[in-house]
């Protein structure tokens, strides 16, 4: 039986050639001295790139920013998404239209989300700095994207705006799969609204919540687009996360060897994260 292989081979070969092979090559670059535009480079340097990495203050800062970026984005996306999903779960007049409108940000291409928010935050053209100034949140209507202390929050706002509908969709689908009869039975038994939420909704929703948050964490940590578009990691690497640091190293620095070493470090960190999660899951399952 070779028929299934015929059907799946073209897709599989293309995926292997453009992702699996480059991943292996990319990891090998991390141990070489590869500078674009420099034909004499390319020698094997062992762990030199990684030694440089450990001394690189920008990398450690990017690592710290990755945690802030991922936790803030995913945390707020989840919180707002859960509120939305709970509110959209019961029928009411106008629900279809409100739902379509609220989900719209998810369809906007990331680069445009980034550009749109950098315009909103730009005092020359956007209202947000003026509003923040009028409310006393800022001392002057400045652009937070050029403030090293707050620049990362620009992409975070954009990321929350863009990613909230995704959580709302996923959680809403999970909510709608809870059998209505359970709620009715609980109501007959005299359970109040909060009680029903705690003892029915939460336990039913928990598996979807955990899986979505975990996968989303990896995806958000890996996504440098909003930062590349809005701040390019600046000013002076202040808003750089590890993923955007790899990109700017490769794009501006043309230092492919070092960029690959940073990318490899990112992969290792994500693997550690994944293993920790699996370990925690096993421990929790074992306790039951």
């Amino acid at each position: 039986m070779f028929e299934p292989y015929l059907y799946s081979a073209p897709a599989l070969l293309l995926v292997a050639a453009t992702t699996l092979v480059p991943i292996v090559i990319g990891i090998s670059y991390a141990f070489r001295n590869i500078m674009l535009l420099d034909p004499t480079s390319g020698g094997f340097v062992g762990l030199d790139n990684f030694r440089e990495l450990l001394r690189d203050a920008s990398f450690w800062n990017a690592l710290k920013n990755t945690v802030v970026w991922t936790a803030s984005c995913v945390g707020f996306q989840f919180l707002f998404g859960l509120i939305l999903a709970l509110m959209l779960n019961r029928p009411f007049p106008g629900r279809a239209l409100i739902q379509a409108t609220i989900f719209l940000p998810w369809a906007i291409p990331t680069f445009l989300v980034g550009m749109n928010w950098s315009w909103l935050l730009n005092p020359a053209i956007g209202p947000l700095p003026h509003w923040a100034y009028a409310l006393g949140l800022m001392n002057a209507p400045d652009n937070i994207l050029s403030d090293p202390d707050y620049a990362l929050w620009g992409p975070i706002f954009a990321g929350i705006w863009w990613g909230t509908p995704f959580f709302a969709i996923t959680l809403l689908a999970a909510l709608q799969s809870i059998p209505r009869e359970i709620y009715e039975a609980a109501e007959i038994d005299g359970a109040g609204g909060l009680e029903r939420f705690r003892s029915i909704t939460l336990p039913f929703l928990a598996p979807t919540m955990v899986i979505t948050v975990l996968l989303r964490t990896i995806w958000v940590a890996n996504s440098p687009e909003l930062i590349v578009v809005m701040t390019k990691g600046g000013p002076a690497d202040a808003s750089q996360i590890v993923a955007s640091y790899v990109f700017t190293q490769a794009y501006q620095g043309l230092n492919f060897g070092y960029a690959s070493a940073v990318a490899t470090a990112l992969v290792l960190l994500l693997l550690i994260y994944a293993f920790l999660l699996i370990a925690i899951r096993q421990a929790m399952l074992g306790r039951r």
Binding site: M1, P4, Y5, S8, L12, V15, A16, T18, T19, L20, V21, P22, I23, I25, G26, I27, Y29, I34, L36, L215, I218, W219, A221, N222, P224, A243, V246, F247, A250, F256, A259, S260, A263, T264, L266, V267, L270
Partner: peptide, 28 residues
């Protein structure tokens, strides 16, 4: 078919990998 499980696994893994790691090799 034989290997189906692995093929699905490979496709899932490529979704989880940071894209930035393939940027430099693909350029080269």
């Amino acid at each position: 078919f034989r290997g189906r499980y692995w093929i699905v696994g490979v496709m899932l893994v490529t979704q989880m990998f940071p894209l930035v790691i393939v940027i430099t090799p693909i350029f080269s």
